[in-house]
Amino acid sequence: MVLRALLPRRRRPRQVWLHIGLPKCGSTTIQRHMAEAYEQHLQLGLCYPQSHRSATGYRNHIPLARLAAEDLPAALAEIEAEADRHGCRRILLSCEHWTNAFYTGRLAALAEALQQQMPDWQIRLVAYFRNPYDLAESSYAQFLRAGLFGIDKPAFFAAGPPGIGRYLSCFEENYGFPLPSLLGFAQMLQAGLPAGSLILRSNEPADLDAPDMLSDFCSLLSLPPPAAAERRNSRILPRKLAEIEYVQTRVSQPVYAQLRPKLLKRDFTRGAPPGPARGSSLHLSAAMAEEITRRLEAERGQLAALFATRTDALCAARRQDWSQAELLDEEARARLRKFIRRQSP
């Protein structure tokens, strides 16, 4: 016992953690918490660098994600210097862009630059996954609002009537696998990253030992759990999403970008009661849901072997009414056309 006490303790290796999404899987909750707890976490040896991090908004590392490969070494030197100033042996970088625009997000280039510029640091990448039924519908909603997965919005709206079915087809054409295929995402990430560096986790609370995804993430990084439930992003009602979708069939994307703030704020319902919850173009049909169910059954075993968490809830089939309805009548469309005429430059 005396000899052991005299021996120097082995320090844990320095680590760089990359939280890479996936999109619509709670990344903003993690980023908000890490930004707000920046000072507290410095005292615990973890740096969520302010270098190459957005100062406002999501406060993620999208400035780093958008850098050209030749600019990464200098950026990583600044990030390492910030961690060293505070005596931190762990660094966390977080941005959805590394997966929601995988083929242009330079994730593989960043992993390679980290290995070259910070060879004494252990690299760990973590991605959280969401139940694919929810992922498909939430992804289309985000695409309508501001784009997602690098799908060309002008080309999408120029090609004909929009809808979640055509959106899913565009994704598969671009990426080579269906968006609801969790195995497709996992294999895409594994193929471009150092062997053994990627950690895949469910964000479904029933699959986790912690109460929720944020608590699970904090545990993974040896951080204290959040003191209280974090705020969630506000959700847009299906009727408003239908309005957003329709307006983009009438105007160019630059004009939509100018109209969007007023479109989001204005109530076009004229006091009408809430309509159906599932829009005919916004939400999965019964046939689409059945296809996802078949795919989940085929992938379930492989996913369980790849994931570091349980996957029972992640792969659970949704039991619900998949019926759809038209959310905008001609009167509503006429009001939206009038809004466009009055507000367009």
Score class of each variant (00 low, 15 high):
180 P>Y: 13
180 P>V: 10
180 P>S: 06
180 P>N: 10
180 P>T: 08
181 S>I: 09
181 S>T: 03
181 S>M: 13
181 S>P: 07
181 S>G: 11
183 L>D: 08
184 G>A: 09
184 G>E: 13
185 F>Q: 10
185 F>E: 02
186 A>C: 14
186 A>N: 06
186 A>P: 03
187 Q>P: 00
187 Q>S: 09
187 Q>D: 14
188 M>S: 14
188 M>T: 09
188 M>A: 15
188 M>C: 10
188 M>L: 14
189 L>I: 08
189 L>V: 03
190 Q>L: 15
190 Q>S: 12
190 Q>M: 10
190 Q>K: 14
192 G>K: 13
193 L>H: 03
193 L>P: 02
193 L>E: 01
193 L>G: 01
194 P>W: 12
194 P>L: 12
194 P>A: 11
195 A>N: 04
195 A>S: 08
196 G>S: 07
196 G>E: 11
196 G>A: 08
196 G>Y: 03
197 S>M: 07
198 L>W: 13
198 L>Y: 03
198 L>F: 09
199 I>D: 01
199 I>L: 13
199 I>S: 01
200 L>I: 00
200 L>T: 02
200 L>G: 04
200 L>P: 02
200 L>M: 15
201 R>T: 03
201 R>C: 04
202 S>T: 09
202 S>L: 05
202 S>Y: 06
202 S>C: 05
203 N>F: 06
204 E>H: 08
204 E>C: 01
204 E>V: 00
205 P>Y: 02
205 P>F: 10
206 A>T: 04
206 A>D: 12
207 D>G: 05
207 D>C: 12
208 L>S: 06
208 L>E: 03
208 L>V: 08
208 L>G: 02
208 L>M: 06
209 D>H: 13
209 D>E: 15
210 A>F: 00
210 A>M: 05
211 P>K: 12
211 P>W: 08
211 P>E: 07
212 D>N: 14
212 D>M: 03
212 D>Y: 06
212 D>H: 13
212 D>C: 01
213 M>R: 14
214 L>F: 06
215 S>P: 05
215 S>Y: 09
215 S>A: 15
216 D>M: 03
216 D>T: 00
217 F>C: 06
218 C>L: 15
218 C>D: 11
218 C>T: 11
219 S>V: 06
220 L>K: 04
220 L>M: 15
220 L>A: 09
221 L>V: 15
221 L>H: 05
222 S>E: 15
222 S>A: 15
222 S>V: 03
222 S>Q: 15
223 L>C: 04
223 L>F: 05
223 L>Y: 04
223 L>W: 02
224 P>C: 08
224 P>G: 13
224 P>Q: 11
224 P>M: 10
225 P>S: 15
226 P>G: 08
227 A>I: 02
228 A>H: 01
228 A>T: 05
228 A>F: 13
229 A>W: 04
229 A>Y: 03
229 A>C: 09
229 A>I: 13
229 A>Q: 14
229 A>D: 09
230 E>C: 01
230 E>Q: 15
230 E>H: 15
230 E>R: 14
230 E>Y: 11
231 R>C: 02
231 R>F: 00
231 R>G: 06
232 R>G: 14
232 R>W: 03
232 R>D: 09
233 N>L: 02
234 S>Y: 00
235 R>E: 15
235 R>A: 15
